[in-house]
Amino acid sequence: MAVANDLSLASEQPESRHENQTRRVLRRLMRSTNARVGIFLVVAFLLIALLVPLVDDYDARRDLDLSSRLQPPSSEHWFGTDDLGRDVLRRVLHGARVSLQVAILSVSISLIIGSMIGLVAGMTGGWVDNVLMRLMDIMLAFPYVLLAIALVTTLGAGLRNTMIAIGIVYVPIYARLSRSVAISLREEDYVMAARSIGSTQLRILFSHIVPNGLSPIIVQATLSMGIAVLDAAALGFLGLGQQPPYPEWGKMLVDSLQFILSGSWWVMLFPGLAIMLTVLGFNLLGDGLRDALDPRLRM
């Protein structure tokens, strides 16, 4: 019985340690005001993106009311209306889904592909590492926005291609990061121990390297989501993202340009504010996570 108890304790230990660590990180995260604001903003926009389309059945193709063009904010239209008489608040709320979709999916694409490239390069070394990293260097030779623009121009404008382009553009970030993680961890004692008992490379990778090197990647992914929202808006602004009449924050901004002269400031204020608050949320959360996961890196 005692032996059985010991065994169950032994099997529980790693999990409880992991749980303790998660709780510690969460506690540290919640202690920071900045991180709390970040969590609030990110959760708020996620909820908007998830719930608004469920609550409000919005058909962008039929949304047109020329009798109430460019009306300033009022009790009826809190954020005013645009040049086609569409409610700006409604479009800003529905636009959240597009921006967050781009952020989450494009960062997932780059995270998966980039981490795989980086881990393979870091674990294998030699010419494989050299070739893969030189390829990444070539991609890094382009400023992100420019490469994304070139890719979308090539692939064709639209939401799907925006996500693919942003996803591809961020691949080198994760490749470099996960490679450096793999290189620093592959010489650790526990990895050596696993290797000496005959664990396969794949097992070492997924049981030791990935779980232990996750922190910097989580931080980077959070920060990248903010940048992805900005880049998606930039592509939308250039007319390369989500196509009209569907609401997209960047496109809403470029459309507002021509009405500023007539003093319709509300058309440009709210979509921009939405972009800024979403990005700010991801940045605050990313900074907070970095401090919580590794206090040595505190800026």
Partner: peptide, 18 residues
């Protein structure tokens, strides 16, 4: 500074212009 990195420059441009 954090608000600065979170702001789309084209939006800031429009705000300044306005």
């Amino acid at each position: 500074a954090l608000a600065g990195v979170s702001m789309p420059i084209f939006w800031l441009g429009i705000l300044l212009m306005w």
